[in-house]
Design a protein around this nucleic acid. Structure first.
Lengths: 222, 222
DNA sequence: ACCTGAACACCGTTCAAGT
DNA sequence: ACCTGAACACCGTTCAAGT
């Protein structure tokens, strides 16, 4: 009892900390607090805040760790499927499912370039699939970007409160109120919007791939 | 000179602060720092940090102020146009243009319910337009939510770095690299993705409105 | 190399004191 | 009612001291 009560100063014989453990603690803190601070993460690990700096580059480093962890959780298996549309929808669904499991990390990861090797590799597959589907090379990134933006927005939606729109007192919005009421019940609100959007994009990709479709050119008019 | 050098303690004869001025200062700080702190906002107004608390409810109150200001900047005029698709695309374009002008406020506003009267009123119009377009009442909010998510994602894209995907060393992603290179030049990358996505949604709405379209039901299969 | 404990600058919030 | 100045708890980051 007296032995483990306090860790004295100086390097311990066996390492107590590593990036893996820090990532797990940070994710846990975000999951139930909605955000994290370095002292909170350290406390959960039974360690001093300053100790974290031996493994990660401050707070930004911990965010980077969360980004990696999220990337690892995504299931890229669907991308090796047979048909391009099932492959894409399967991957994007798992992409969003990871955020659905950890909605409160989303706001922490929204502003930065994608560099995660696993994610980059997945997008490599996505590009190949789109080209196989018949999308013109110069249009590929436009489509990927649009879908990515949609998924990020849908992920943020998961972190948002249950009611996305609320008609305040004094404001008259009967049709909006009616539409809000007419929504199918259940917690599937965000799920339905996601599925609808994804199917919408897939349908457009099919249209772009049909030979002799005049709307192909329309995308380049502006 | 000696008169205005210091403001002594006690209530000034004429009010120096109001919500409007605070909103403007906060927006300016965010625009060029990427974030704001109360001391920064106060400094820009030549005032003590504590003074802000007489007009807004702390930091959260200033965020609320930014939300209001952004709502006011949106141009709802297109919503009174003749055809539903031009009305919707016009409004959503201005919606996103406001964020394009103030990209760094986006991350501050992403997690919360829409209550802004101006924005609620705009969505009331959007609902009416969608119903006029022939969308089933129970589908309206699904579509609105999907489009909203897409726009939020597209707005965040504006706050992100120029390169959204970067293939790191050691990772092999030739087709992604080629697709990135094949993008049309110019800063229109985000704009093109936004236009593509919006037109994609409008096309789907048209399809849903066509009488006797079997795909209508498909949306409710899951 | 890795952990501690103390230190520092900075932030958000509160509050008594002044007009 | 509205502003100041001081105070407090807390956060991110640095660093010398210890093994």
């Amino acid at each position: 009892m007296a032995r483990t009560e306090h860790r004295r100063a100086g390097r311990p014989r066996q390492t107590v900390l590593n990036r893996e453990r820090i990532a797990g603690a940070a994710l846990a803190v975000v999951d139930d607090r909605g955000d994290f601070t370095l002292p909170e993460v350290a406390r959960r690990l039974g360690v001093q805040t300053a100790s974290l700096y031996h493994h990660v580059d401050g707070r930004a480093g911990v965010v980077e760790l969360l980004r990696e962890r999220i990337g690892e959780l995504m299931d890229t298996a669907p991308l090796d499927g047979s048909s391009w549309d099932l492959a894409l929808s399967g991957y994007f669904r798992s992409y969003r499912a990871v955020f659905a499991a950890h909605p409160r990390v989303v706001p922490l990861l929204t502003t930065s370039t994608v560099t995660e090797p696993r994610v980059i590799a997945a997008y490599e597959r996505v590009v190949v699939l789109l080209e196989e589907a018949g999308v013109q090379r110069r249009d590929v990134m436009t489509i990927v970007t649009a879908m990515e933006n949609f998924i990020i927005g849908s992920a943020l939606d998961l972190a948002a409160p249950d009611v996305m729109w609320e008609v305040p007192e004094g404001v008259d919005a009967p049709r909006l109120a009616a539409a809000l009421t007419a929504q199918p019940a259940g917690d599937g609100r965000a799920d339905r919007a996601f599925e609808f959007g994804m199917q919408t994009f897939l349908a457009m990709i099919r249209r772009l791939s049909e030979p002799g479709d005049a709307s192909k050119e329309a995308q380049h008019r502006s």
